[in-house]
């Protein structure tokens, strides 16, 4: 997180992590198309080859934090391919929260696991404690054959402590929910660590309600 007192700006960094081809960029594209232009800027894609991310994608979102403070979210994706580990580690620097995008296909179980362990290692390398870092997990590609059933996912989700979301990013399903889940978790930790409410008058409930309504999510669903 970065705070600019002069321009009363708070910038939060969220990273979309996950194995190759799990749909990280597709998540950002979906958010970009679903959110109104006042909230989001252009989706920036840095260096691709054959439609595969080499560096990162960057999507900016801006919300009114109340109390005259503007809250800017920067959503990054990492390149999923194994060889780009140095880039992944660099992009993960200073992350405030991470959405892990897993591929629901049973055949991808192993690469999901490897990417998750790699994320854990890279968080540590960046001086971030994975145990306290805000993480949400999205099981993407729910529409494909050969995926784990919902019951299975729910059973697995109960074992872990990270919130689990189901999505079909190509259709935009579950994408906003994942982002909101990550935002809430991240914001609660930022509040705990930096007392944003006390110091800057940023009420977490008011702020999160504002974000939800800007994204068109009714209160009850959150």
């Amino acid at each position: 997180m970065q705070i600019d007192f002069k321009s009363r700006e708070l910038t939060v960094k969220l990273v979309y992590y996950g194995p190759a081809l799990s749909g990280k960029t597709t998540n950002l594209q979906a958010i970009h198309s679903l959110v109104s232009p006042e909230t989001t800027g252009r989706l920036m894609t840095l260096e691709t080859r054959d439609d595969r991310t080499l560096f990162f994608d960057l999507l900016p979102l801006t919300f009114d934090g109340g109390a005259g403070i503007q809250v800017r979210f920067k959503l990054f994706t990492v390149p999923g391919q194994v060889i780009h580990n140095a880039t992944r580690r660099l992009v993960l620097q200073g992350a405030d929260g991470t959405a892990f995008i897993a591929d629901s296909q049973i055949s991808e179980t192993r690469s999901n696991q490897q990417a998750f362990l790699n994320m854990q290692e890279n968080l540590r390398e960046n001086g971030i404690d994975p145990a306290t870092h805000p993480i949400v997990i999205q099981f993407n590609k729910r529409d494909l054959p050969g995926v784990r059933t919902d019951e299975e996912l729910e059973r697995m989700a109960k074992k872990g402590r990270e919130p689990v979301f189901k999505a079909v990013a190509t259709r935009g399903t579950g994408v906003i929910e994942t982002f909101l889940g990550l935002t809430e978790r991240t914001w609660r930790q930022l509040e705990e660590r930096h007392q944003l409410h006390e110091k800057f008058g940023l009420d977490p409930e008011v702020f999160l309600r504002g974000v939800r309504s800007r994204l068109g999510i009714p209160e009850a669903a959150a």
Binding site: Q2, K13, K74, F76, L90, G94, N126, G127
Partner: peptide, 13 residues
Amino acid sequence: DAARTSGIDLAFG
């Protein structure tokens, strides 16, 4: 920390 490549300014982009 000293050995780590600093990319934080860049990463906030």
